[in-house]
Amino acid sequence: MKKIVLALTAVAAMTGSASAADLAARPYVKAPVAAPVASWTGFYVFGGGGGGLSNSDQRIQTTATALPLTIDQRQGGSGWFGTVGLGYDWQFSGTWVAGVFADGQFGSIRSTVQDPIFPTGPITGRQKLEDSWAAGVRLGWLVAPNVLSYVNGGYSGAHFGSTTFTTLAGTPAGVHINGYNRNGWFIGGGVENNLNIFGIQSPGWFMKTEYRSAFYNAKTSDILTDGTNALTTQSIRANSWNQTISTSLVYRFNWTGPVVAKY
């Protein structure tokens, strides 16, 4: 009988110890920290490059004949350019972003200028869009917290370089037109995305790809003789329509998210 009592006592003691162990304090686990909300509000700078196409409606006018003669034609060209700029964005209503920006382009987009009725025979030249500048606004929608799709538009100005003409045989024609500035406007659009991809952490760094179409008002240029700048009997009135596609690296000074939650 004593043996039975002792056995029951041992079993009770072991059960009590197990229950006490179950009631011991559990290890502390830190709650997950919420990821910061991405914000597009703030200043940014960018730089990049791309390629462009140029089209021009030209009207050749001459007084060399008894009656004034005009010929209308369209010419084009292409080339490359670099760009730098800065801007400021505001994020509102959760997924919308509005901003202002200014930028400049420089490079070598060239278009053809021809005069098929020059008194000494047809002449041709190449005109270079040496640099341009723009100031505008943009409005975008966040496809994802770190991806912005946008449209933009605003004012644009450009400087077109002087054009030296040659004959169809390639010899100097002895005439030219001077360079000039033109004003106009542009519309465009693009996509901008954060570069935190493929496991690479690059807070603040973005890439944007943008299409832009710029229209510059017409300019009448007299064809001048080389050396003396004396007027000839010819003039060319031309406008310009330039289309460009560029890719730029962007740095945002205030970018903080989104990042992976920490535990």
Results as ranks from 00 to 15, higher is better:
V151L: 12
G99D: 08
W141M: 11
G104E: 10
S111A: 11
S111C: 07
F160M: 03
F106D: 12
F160G: 04
G140H: 06
T167C: 07
L142A: 03
F160Y: 01
V137P: 00
P122Q: 10
Y88M: 12
F118V: 14
G136M: 05
A135I: 06
V100N: 01
W133F: 02
T95L: 03
E130Y: 09
G157A: 05
A98G: 11
N146Y: 13
T124M: 07
G125M: 10
G107M: 08
A144T: 13
Y155T: 04
T120N: 04
P145H: 10
W96I: 02
T166E: 13
Y155V: 02
N152Y: 05
A158P: 00
D89M: 12
A135V: 11
G153H: 01
T95Y: 12
G87L: 13
Q91R: 05
L168K: 14
A144K: 15
I117P: 01
L129A: 10
Q114S: 15
I109G: 00
G153S: 05
Y150G: 00
D131P: 10
D103A: 13
N152Q: 01
Q105V: 06
D131A: 07
Q114H: 07
A134R: 09
T95G: 11
G94L: 07
D103W: 03
S149F: 12
W96R: 03
Q105G: 03
Q105N: 13
G154W: 03
P122K: 15
D115E: 07
R126M: 11
Y150E: 02
S111V: 14
R138N: 04
R110N: 08
T120L: 15
S156I: 09
V143H: 15
G94R: 03
F165N: 03
D89P: 00
R126W: 12
N152S: 03
P119I: 07
V137R: 09
R138H: 08
D103E: 13
F92P: 00
V113S: 02
Y150N: 00
F101A: 00
G85L: 06
L86R: 06
R110S: 09
G107H: 06
D131L: 09
W141Q: 05
F160S: 06
L142I: 10
A135M: 15
S108A: 12
G161M: 12
L139K: 09
G125K: 04
G157L: 03
L142W: 08
V97D: 03
R138S: 01
W96T: 12
L139P: 01
V151W: 13
G107D: 01
N152G: 02
S93C: 05
G154D: 02
A102E: 00
V113G: 12
S111H: 11
G87D: 04
F101S: 07
D115G: 02
A144E: 14
V147P: 00
T95P: 03
G121Q: 05
V100G: 13
T167F: 13
V143E: 11
G136Y: 02
L139N: 06
A158M: 05
F101E: 02
